Simulated scan of single mutants.
Amino acid sequence: MNDQFQHVMVLISIIIGLAITHLLSGVVDAVDRANDEDEPEIFSALGALWAVTVFLWMVNFWWFQFRLLSLVDSWTLWRYLFIILYSVALYILAVILVPRDWNAIRRYPEYFMRNRRWFFVALLLAGIADVADAWLKGGWAYVAGMGAFNNIVALATIPVVAIGIVSKKVRTQTILAAIYFVLFLIAVFEYAPVLVVA
Rank of each mutant, 00 (worst) to 15 (best):
I16Y: 02
M113C: 07
R106L: 08
I84H: 05
Y91T: 07
F149A: 07
A162T: 12
L185G: 05
Q4S: 14
V121K: 02
F82H: 08
I163R: 03
W140R: 12
A51F: 03
L195I: 15
E190G: 00
V188C: 12
D38F: 04
R33H: 09
L46D: 02
L85H: 08
T21A: 15
E37K: 14
A187V: 03
L93D: 03
M1L: 11
L24I: 15
D73C: 01
S13W: 12
A129P: 00
I165P: 02
V121M: 09
D133Q: 09
D29T: 01
F55Y: 13
I96A: 02
P193L: 10
V27P: 01
R100L: 12
F5W: 13
L56E: 03
T172H: 07
F181M: 11
N103L: 11
W102I: 07
A177Y: 03
W135L: 11
V28T: 10
F189Q: 09
L155D: 04
A48M: 13
A94C: 08
A144K: 14
R171G: 10
F184L: 09
V166A: 14
L11F: 15
V170N: 07
I163N: 01
A177M: 08
V196L: 13
R116K: 15
L195G: 10
I165V: 15
L183D: 01
L93W: 00
L155T: 01
A134R: 04
M146V: 05
A198T: 05
L176D: 04
L125D: 04
Y191M: 13
W62H: 06
T174C: 09
I186Q: 02
A156V: 09
F55L: 15
A178G: 14
S25M: 13
L68S: 10
V166I: 14
A154M: 09
S25F: 13
A132E: 05
M146P: 00
I105P: 04
D32P: 00
G147W: 05
I84S: 05
L123M: 14
S44F: 04
V161D: 01
L11C: 06
E37C: 00
V27C: 08
E190H: 03
F184T: 11
M58S: 02
I96V: 15
H22T: 07
D32M: 03
F5L: 11
L136A: 08
L68W: 09
W78K: 13
K137A: 12
G147E: 10
I92M: 10
S167P: 04
L71H: 10
G145K: 07
A19K: 05
N60E: 13
D29C: 06
Y91V: 03
V160H: 04
V197M: 14
V95G: 01
I165G: 04
Q6H: 12
K168V: 05
E41F: 09
F64P: 00
I128Q: 07
A177E: 06
N35Q: 12
I92D: 04
G164V: 07
D73V: 09
L23M: 11
Y91M: 14
V131E: 04
Q173K: 07
R107G: 01
I179H: 00
L69G: 00
A192G: 08
L24W: 11
H22P: 03
F82I: 10
A187W: 03
R106V: 12
A126H: 02
D29Q: 13
P159A: 07
F112K: 02
V121H: 05
V121D: 05
A134S: 15
